[in-house]
Design a protein around this nucleic acid. Structure first.
Lengths: 211, 211
DNA sequence: ACCTGAACACCGTTCAAGT
DNA sequence: ACCTGAACACCGTTCAAGT
């Protein structure tokens, strides 16, 4: 918010010259995604929204993919924050997992395009996007931690918490996508019953000990 | 394969003038997706590969999205065929579900880009792609049918088979994406253990009767 | 160090015209 | 009925030049 007084004239028209154009570009991209959908997300449109020239983003991002990757990274971070808050709310154990599940689905419903981009084809291969990879891995680590906690509480049976975490995340993600894609429209008018059922299956399945 | 002899001259150079350019375009698009990835999938490249002018595809598809939608539709059909074959193989019941799960994951691994496009942002909203919507819904119906069978066999507890089917599909899809995105690389070197674990959780969870 | 202006190649899409 | 050739607007990316 606060910025140094600019050295010469023209204090207002362009607000992003104080040094954090990179963050402003990511923010602008996320807004475009939310407001206009994926087809509106062009580098040039992002630059226009941030009030800079079409070439300016190249000072901060190698190419278009890098910007999309940064948006995805932001998404994973926001998703993890939301889950963290849901875990801290009262009602641990089984109720806690259910709360996290609802939080996860709500995030996807509230940020449909951004969520789809996070798991979409463009930034799927993260070999050249190390920060995105780290953010995504961190989300998995977060889920694994939660599973380990449930195991300690005796609510989840023994087994590699990482494997169980992947299975859990997989169910949440799949549910989010199927709901977003309206695959469930004719089947589960309101999605709550669906999330309940999936959570139930998960909890019972995880409580059972491995063969 | 066999075609009518062309009315005049030039029998070979362009093979698609016999009337199924539409199918040829979809095929060409799927090949490009497989060989060059999503960024190679331009309408013009598809036209080039099919040996027609850049404007020709517009005779058969409204726009680029419609072509991508047709590829996705083809994908759902092929996926469903693969699952059907896996179900018909010996070993019904629990072993059958596991077989279907492995088949599902293998399809995703064998057709990574195509699979991601099927669930990606471009064709997510199917309001204007009725055939894609039908194909995707049909896949869900297929899973629901399999669940109903398992219920009859007493291997899955009572409950709306549609809801259980969504939860099942969600887990398979989530698993496929997480594996494709290498989210599981540091956690499950070979994916088999992962699929086993997820199937186990699903089966135990579904066997339990609802609260 | 960071940004602009202009340029290039390429793409989606349209349309008059061909057979 | 189906396809071509040429055109237009727009995009990703580069690069010399500005401050």
């Amino acid at each position: 918010m606060a910025g140094k007084s600019s050295p010469r004239k023209r204090a207002r028209p362009r607000a992003y010259h104080h040094g954090d154009l990179k963050a402003a570009l990511v923010e602008a991209a996320a807004e475009i995604l939310q407001n206009e959908g994926l087809e509106g997300l062009t580098l040039r449109a992002v630059a226009r929204r941030a009030g800079v020239s079409q070439a300016a983003p190249y000072r901060h991002f190698d190419d278009r993919r890098a910007l999309v990757g940064a948006v995805a990274e932001r998404g994973f971070r926001r998703l993890q924050d939301a889950m963290l808050q849901a875990m801290q709310a009262p009602g641990g154990g089984r109720a806690g997992l259910k709360q996290v599940a609802f939080t996860y689905i709500r995030f996807a419903l509230d940020n449909p395009t951004e969520y789809r981009v996070m798991f979409g084809p463009e930034v799927a291969v993260t070999d050249d996007l190390p920060e995105l990879r780290t953010a995504a891995r961190s989300t998995l680590g977060f889920v694994a931690q939660a599973i380990a906690q449930l195991q300690k509480a005796g609510l989840v049976g023994p087994g590699d918490p990482n494997l169980i975490a992947v299975a859990t995340w997989a169910t949440l993600h799949g549910l989010a996508i199927l709901i977003l894609d309206r695959q469930t429209a004719g089947v589960a008018p309101q999605t709550d019953a669906l999330v309940e059922e999936a959570t139930r299956i998960l909890m019972f399945g995880m409580a059972a000990r491995p063969t």
